[in-house]
């Protein structure tokens, strides 16, 4: 590319410098001519480099801006800590279904005595294989993904299908306990546009309804199966 600009620039300079009378004198003074050629060559090369740099810089900037435009601002899905229930009122071995502000149903079970987050588990219903939603099959005692036949036991460990081959398990939502209250970090909005409105972060009083067991979605995991 630089070479072609050099050629074009040289051609232009040679043409613009053509003058029959000066050509004669140039022939007579070969030393001066050589110096002129050298100067012209230098200018031609310099201008070609400047032109190439300018083109690459401007189109490059444009391309990088266009490339950046392809990645939307704030593309990360928003999640927030949501109040679930008081730890003291929750017996070990019991579970409840929690409906997140996005509408997602999360099954949360207590499997330990300790008053710490590790004693609870909140399984995501998103299949780790390719992102479909699993559902509970009580007759088979398993979570089942209808997309590619992945199956998981009640602890979320894959037992069949591609997730089992890859050793994947259902992901767990992060949990924390603050002042004796259990919180889950769950998605705040859904793409469908008809999910319940997002509730304020860390505001237990605002979410009593959504976290109560009677607010669960009927078509999700069979209630109490994990207890």
């Amino acid at each position: 590319m630089v070479f072609s600009f050099v050629s074009i620039a040289r051609f232009g300079l040679m043409n613009s410098g053509q003058d029959p009378t000066s050509q004669n004198s140039a022939e007579q003074d070969s030393a001066a001519s050589s110096s002129d050629d050298h100067r012209r060559s230098f200018i031609a090369t310099g201008s070609a480099i400047a032109m190439t740099t300018g083109l690459v810089a401007s189109y490059g900037t444009f391309a990088s801006m266009a490339g950046r435009f392809l990645f939307p601002a704030g593309g990360q899905r928003s999640v927030g800590w949501q109040f679930v229930a008081a730890v003291a009122s929750w017996q070990p071995g019991k579970s409840l279904e929690y409906t997140a502000p996005s509408g997602a149903t999360v099954v949360i079970a207590r499997h330990g005595e300790a008053d710490e987050a590790e004693a609870f588990i909140a399984l995501s219903s998103v299949c780790p294989h390719l992102g479909c939603r699993v559902h509970w099959e009580s007759q088979n005692d398993r979570f089942f993904c209808p997309c590619h036949n992945g199956a998981f036991d009640r602890q979320g460990v894959a037992t069949q299908g591609p997730p089992a081959k890859a050793g994947q398990s259902l992901k767990a939502y992060p949990l924390k306990i603050e002042a004796g209250l259990l919180y889950v970090e769950a998605p705040l909005h859904s793409v469908g546009g008809d999910a319940p409105a997002a509730v304020a972060q860390n505001d237990p009083s605002a979410q009593n309804d959504s976290s109560a067991p009677d607010a669960v979605q009927a078509d999700a995991v069979e209630k109490g199966r994990l207890s």
Binding site: A104, C132, R133, P146, G192, D219
Partner: peptide, 11 residues
């Protein structure tokens, strides 16, 4: 209609 929360049983 698309329901991001439920994958249909047969898909």
């Amino acid at each position: 209609k698309a329901d991001p929360l439920t994958t249909p049983e047969i898909i």
